[in-house]
Nucleic acid binder design. Structure first.
Lengths: 223, 223
DNA sequence: CCGGTATCTAAACGCTGTTCAGATTGGAGT
DNA sequence: ACTCCAATCTGAACAGCGTTTAGATACCGG
């Protein structure tokens, strides 16, 4: 565990930490396995006793970060300002947390949100997507989200939030005022929820672009 | 221009074509400049007379595809079914085109939509973002999008559509029925527009998460 | 027909991910 | 306390990568 040891102690975590730092400094691909190993003070081949390849290391970092993000989202829902059990406020807090993270740590966010980098069998807990689903259930339970609009609503909200997050992380859109990010996020969440509610009220008149069986879909892996 | 020539004729385009095919086969990074050169029948160093680096080649491909996408979106707006001048139908057609492209050509879409790969000075025409903005103007002009909600509305719609597109391209979400993609896209557009309209009607009562000067933001580069 | 310039080739550089045979170590069983 | 084993790490090696340089080739304006 100390320096100068032949055995490192916790090389796996140390490599993940080094990789995370390198991603922040130079992006997902701007560094080498050799460099991460050297930074930890170990030979390049040592890494292969903990990760099958460089890609596996990157995936593991992605999963670790995704689980961390899920926990962060869950906590920020609890810490939502105002009446603590206002489900809409909670969802806005979730959205703010998601989006502000992607802006504050864009390089890591780019890596994680791209999600092709998570192993199919990985059991991330709590998964950000599950946290979002739980909040929508809470919203529906409180009557704020009419039942006919509940089905598949997570994909509408998720798409909107995820879109904003990746647009910011990729630098495709920029806000002059950092506070404007929160406002825009809140607007996206409110707009989406309002739209979903209105869709339900219109549903009787004409069928919306939605039906029970055509919307069956499966989440796959990432954030 | 023919085979066996010492001078290729249009090596630049040929390299872009080869890169595009390789991206489809093995993703953005699953191929080498050397391989693209070999496929075109040219030595690796020949590429450097047309592109400063491998990265420059990839960026050029991204820009070429982005311009192609802009043209496609514009055309699909015109070809919108139903009353041709129904601005909402046009926007739905745009959304469908954007999203279905990202699903039909996911590898190239991943490359293009991550947008960090477009040069800052590139003049892409027509830029997808500009096509979207034009359609929202049309919508506002027809009175379908109330004026107070118009400002910054493109970022709400863009975020929702872009989010859905990247979720599909990255495989983070999958639809069993291909037709469900269109339905979900239409739902996202409708929901967003409904929400924006409702936001405007509520705006008098309580201020929405939006204000004129905090929303000033600047587009940067990609799609 | 000539000369210049754009285009392409061949060889080389340092670096990469990855593999493999062998050295080192901590810990479990006696 | 000692032994042995499995886990861990090293060092050297491999092919392939992006990129650079010096030089060959071929098109085009005069």
């Amino acid at each position: 565990m100390a320096k100068g040891r032949y055995h490192h102690g916790d090389l796996r975590s140390a490599l993940l930490d080094a990789a995370e730092a390198l991603v922040r400094e130079r992006g997902t691909d701007g560094w080498s396995l050799r460099e991460a190993s050297a930074r930890v003070g170990v030979s390049p081949s040592a890494a292969y006793h903990h990760f099958a390849s460089r890609d596996t290391l990157v995936r593991a970092l992605s999963e670790r970060t995704l689980a961390w993000l899920g926990e962060r989202l869950r906590q920020d829902c609890e810490r939502a300002p105002g009446r603590q059990d206002d489900p809409q406020r909670r969802l806005i807090a979730l959205g703010r947390s998601y989006v502000s993270w992607s802006l504050d740590d864009p390089a890591v966010a780019r890596l994680v949100l791209r999600g092709g980098a998570t192993a199919p069998d990985s059991a991330i807990s709590p998964h950000p997507h599950d946290v979002l689903t739980a909040e929508l259930d809470r919203l529906a339970g409180a009557g704020a989200l009419p039942e006919p609009a509940r089905e598949g609503a997570e994909f509408v909200v998720w798409a909107a939030l995820h879109g904003l997050a990746v647009l910011l992380a990729d630098g495709l859109v920029r806000f002059d005022d950092p506070h404007a990010v929160d406002l825009q996020t809140e607007r996206v969440v409110r707009t989406t929820l309002n739209g979903l509610a209105q869709e339900a009220s219109h549903a009787a008149g004409r069928p919306a672009g939605r039906s029970a069986h055509t919307e069956r879909l499966a989440r796959r892996s990432g954030g």
